[in-house]
Amino acid sequence: MPQPMVPLPHRILKVRRETGDVFSIETQPETGESGFPFSPGQFNMVYVFGVGEVPLSISGDPAQTKTLTHTIRGVGWVTRALQGIKKGDMIGVRGPFGTPWPMQEIAGNDVLIVAGGVGLAPVRPVIYQLLAEREKYGNISILYGARSPDDMLYGKELEKWRGRFDLHVDVTVDSAKRGWMGNVGVVTQLISKAMPDPDNTLAMICGPEIMMRFTVMELQRQGIEDTGIYLTMERNMKCAVGFCGHCQFGSEFICKDGPVFRYDRIRNIFGKREM
C-alpha cells in the first residue's frame, strides 16, 4: 500500500443482492498487476465519487486477489449511494487497513466463529481460508444469528457449509413465520450445543456490540479464557491510518490497532457506555 491516503480506481464487475437491504459488490483495480492482496478481517475505505468515503470490511476470498468483494448494508449517505451503483461504474478504494484475524495463532486449535447479522461478512474470508487449509485446524464451528430467515446472508453458502462433514454450522433467527424448521432464539444459545473444548478453542466474534458482549459472557461461562477470544470492533473510521482520532477507543485506534482485537486487550473498556 504505497500511498494510504490515495484511493485507487476500481471498476464494478458485479452487484449481488444478498437480502432486502444488503448487497455485495465485486470490483477490480484499474491499475496494477498485483491485484488486491489482503488478510481476513482487514477493511478498506471505499470512496463514492462526489458523495464520500466509508469503511467496509472485505468479505471475499483472500486467495482470489484479482478482484475484491465488499458486503454492504445501505444505511448511510455513502452506502445508500453504493446501492445505486451498477456494473461498469467506478469507485475509489484505499486499503487494506487494520489488523487481521489471527490465522497463524488459530492453527492447530478448534475454531469457533460466532457471527450476527451483517457480521458474517467480515468473517467470511476467515471461513474461506479455514476451508482452503482445513487440515491445519481442529473442529470448526460456525454459529450465525440473524433477524429473520429473509435477513440471513449468504444463504446458499451456509447451506453448502452445513452439508460438510468437517464443519459444524448452526443458525438461528430472532423470529420466523410458521414453516421455518430451524432454530429461533439468540445466537448465544447455540454455543453450548457446539460443545467447545475450552482448553483448545479460539473464538472469533463479529456482530453488533451488544451481541458480542453477551457472546463473550457465554464463552466465559463455557470456560474459554479471555486470551482465546477475538472480536472485531466498529467505530467511525475516517483516515484509517490512526491520524485523525475519529475511531479512538480508549487508548486504541480501531483503524490501526484493530479492528480485530484479542478480548483481554480491550476487556476493561469493552461495553463501557462512555466508550
Partner: peptide, 15 residues
C-alpha cells in the same frame, strides 16, 4: 434474557 435480546432487535438497520 434471550427475549430481551430479541426485543433489542440487535441486527436491525438502526442498531
Amino acid at each position: 434474557q434471550h427475549t430481551r435480546m430479541q426485543l433489542l432487535d440487535v441486527y436491525g438497520a438502526q442498531t
